[in-house]
Nucleic acid binder design. Structure first.
Lengths: 210, 210
DNA sequence: TTAACGTTTGTCCAAACGGTCAAAAAATTG
DNA sequence: CAATTTTTTGACCGTTTGGACAAACGTTAA
């Protein structure tokens, strides 16, 4: 006889569940699922543990709720890539959007990275399903652009992977990036620098004759 | 009165410590530090928990020993980048080496990624010290190549970050890569495909006039 | 043989953990 | 107001965890 999954009914429930999810994001992102305790999340949300468990039946329920939402937000930029648009512009704004997400939602990125690193036990089906479908579709679009000579020919799947890897790097490996860049180059401008560099990498032309 | 850190003295100690480190790598890489238990590591190493704790005083000692060793192996490819060599060749073999490491030592890569993701509490000083020094040195080399017109001009630090991000992606996000590529494209050839793609990305010339 | 030393294990412990529950407190409704 | 429902909490429970420890076992060498 399982307890039913809590659906928010009252105003308080909506608010408190949001509060808990925000706290969960903070805690999960910095310690991973196993490394986070319900007590930590409760404290971050400013309530007692039993109180928290009144809104979410289990620790896992908080986590899965978070990651489900996250996937949507995470795929949105790729979804917006428009076949009818100008290829260079489309790629450029995709990179921009991804870098902005790394800058503005690093916790979400880290939470996601954490899950994948551990073998994605909770979202494996989403990767093989929804994600693969979307990527295959957009890879076909990119391949079309390449065939039309609008983009240098290469493997579209690995092209997408490379954009993911480089942009998310600035969220997931932020400590390392800042440590290496140092206080001067590692300031707030690092995301702008990264965006410019990545545009050049993925779109820029090379020196002629080299 | 702390117990002294165990230094291997006998032949058995050397062997068993290696066995434990191998087991620890396996377990830590798939569950993270907090997610791994001493019992799991002991079982993976084929011994009892108290026996394991005879060779390493604490769980943390296993972890730090692993990560210390790892840093060395991890930086080696960058160290080998030779200012006197041909720029394109040097970059190409750096990428090759990094992709090979992602293919042959994915557990090491994941262990490292896990540590950075959690804020690198145990190796922050190494990042700001040894790592930064090395990267600054090699960034200067790359900048020299760029100034000499041997490489397209861009930010050398971000250039290195991009190589790290893209190559390690194939180890750290392996589940995702395989899920998206599917059974056909996601086979063993994916690393070779990745290497070719990345060489083109970092070194290839673009279509003229685009 | 025996003393010394290195190795292994069963047993135990205190703390931390996820989660339960009854009952109090607060808010809502009639 | 009183009745009802929702929200909050202190106390508690069973389990897991990292680690301690003494006793047993194995090996070597005087």
């Amino acid at each position: 006889m399982d307890k039913p999954v809590k659906k928010p009914r009252t105003r308080i429930q909506k608010e408190k569940r949001e509060l808990i999810l925000e706290a969960g994001l903070e805690v999960f992102a910095s310690h991973g699922f196993r490394g986070s305790t319900v007590d930590q999340i409760a404290e971050a949300a400013g309530m007692s543990k039993p109180n928290l468990l009144y809104y979410f039946n289990t620790k896992e329920e908080i986590f899965t709720t978070l990651i489900q939402r996250l996937m949507e937000a995470w795929l949105a930029p790729l979804r917006e890539m428009d076949e009818a648009g100008d290829p260079a512009t489309e790629i450029r704004s995709y990179i921009r959007r991804k870098i902005e997400m790394a800058r503005d939602f690093p916790r979400e990125s880290r939470l996601f990275a954490n899950e994948i690193l551990q073998g994605a036990p909770r979202i494996h089906h989403l990767l093989k399903g929804e994600l693969k479908e979307l990527v295959d579709e957009k890879a076909a679009v990119i391949r079309g652009w390449m065939r039309a000579g609008k983009l240098k020919k290469s493997d579209p799947h690995h092209f997408i992977f490379a954009i993911w890897a480089t942009t998310q790097h600035y969220a997931d490996f932020d400590v390392q990036v800042r440590a290496v860049l140092g206080p001067d180059k590692g300031g707030e401008g690092r995301f702008e620098d990264a965006a410019r560099f990545l545009e050049g990498l993925f779109l820029g032309e090379r020196l002629p004759g080299v």
